[in-house]
């Protein structure tokens, strides 16, 4: 996903409508057009090979596994079945896991957006290039530390015996430690911390290209500063909001480490379920089916994103 390339052109690049690809000297001259096409395929082949071997093939194997009763490598009584999928739909435990996966994605995306948008706006409008760089480094620097380490840092802060609770109980402000960890709240806090830089980067790219004279024009026409922002900057930044949200949402619903560490056993999402099925239940077929559920979830979000974006791109947004 090259989210930085989202523009408000009338022809969204890579959008559902094929962009009119400009003048191409395809059939001009004696050189056959197929020669250029062959070069194109040649140039594409490394990426295609990589994609086929490391993405399409595993997906195919996964699809196959999800439709089998067991592992064909050591079990020769294996047959085709849809049981892995029916189990998922019939047992509310798994449906709840899907629900909490989506909910966590929404929480983290919402929190990241709320924190990142004002920050990105400030960054994009900063006059001094030096200060902009310094702030940008400050925003991005957490990314230089591993996700696991940052999660552990949050654990020392949010645990029942952690910094915050010990301070508050020590000060006599609370009797019982606040439930800051081993629940959805703790996961959202830690994951938002991890994903805010992604959101900021995506938003700064889009916000930086919005001419600040547009808001000034709106103000000169009688709009207050807030109104000018709502009428002009906000709608123009929708592609950035969508792209950043998509990125954070997709990363959140597929995350495993932070939900496990911050959630303890109180929280189950699809990645945790998949891991359990492979590592403890030794049921790769069901794990594969769950994996497909996650994939369909991600794909439908991406599809919705493109739909909305192409509408905004055509200017039919507001």
């Amino acid at each position: 996903m090259t989210t930085a390339d989202i523009t408000l052109d009338d022809t969204p690049r890579g959008g559902p409508r094929p962009a009119s690809s400009g003048p191409r000297p395809a059939s001009s001259g004696p050189r056959p057009a197929s020669s250029g096409r062959r070069t194109a395929w040649l140039l594409l082949s490394p990426a295609l090979a990589f994609f086929a071997v490391l993405f399409l093939m595993p997906l195919a194997v996964m699809l196959l596994f999800s439709l089998l009763t067991g592992n064909p490598l050591w079990d020769d009584t294996v047959t085709f079945t849809l049981e892995n999928y029916t189990r998922m739909v019939q047992d509310t435990y798994y449906l709840e896991a899907v629900g909490s996966t989506v909910l966590l994605g929404l929480y983290v995306t919402g929190a990241s957006l709320a924190i990142a948008y004002p920050l990105a706006l400030q960054l994009a409008r900063m006059r001094s290039a030096a200060w902009r760089s310094i702030l940008m480094i400050a925003v991005l620097s957490p990314m230089m530390t591993g996700m696991v380490i940052r999660t552990f840092a949050w654990m020392t802060l949010l645990a029942d015996q952690g910094v915050i609770n010990r301070t508050l109980t020590g000060a006599g402000l609370i009797a019982e430690p606040l439930p800051l960890m081993y629940n959805t709240f703790g996961i959202v806090v830690a994951m938002t911390h991890i994903f805010v830089p992604f959101m900021v980067l995506t938003l700064v790219g889009v916000l930086g290209r919005i001419d600040d004279r547009l808001e000034q024009a709106a103000q000169s026409l009688g709009a207050t500063r807030l109104r000018a922002f709502v009428e002009v900057t906000l709608p123009l930044s929708v592609p950035g909001i969508l792209a950043g949200s998509l990125l954070v949402f997709a990363l959140t619903i597929s995350s495993y480490v932070t939900p496990t560490l911050m959630g303890g056993f109180a929280f189950v999402n699809l990645p945790i379920l998949i891991y359990q099925q492979i590592a403890s239940s030794f049921n790769p077929s069901f794990a594969a089916a769950l994996g497909f559920a996650l994939l369909v979830l991600s794909m439908s979000v991406i599809a919705a994103y493109w739909r909305v974006l192409s509408r905004v791109g055509r200017g039919g947004g507001t």
């Binding site: 408000l8 004279r213 103000q219 009688g222 500063r225 109104r227 123009l236």
Partner: peptide, 28 residues
Amino acid sequence: PPHKRDMGLVFQNDALFPHRTVHQNVAF
């Protein structure tokens, strides 16, 4: 503030709202 001055403003780059039609721009 600018919105209380009752002045029309035309910029060098026209500063039209790209997400609005001509009508919506003028009607703003």
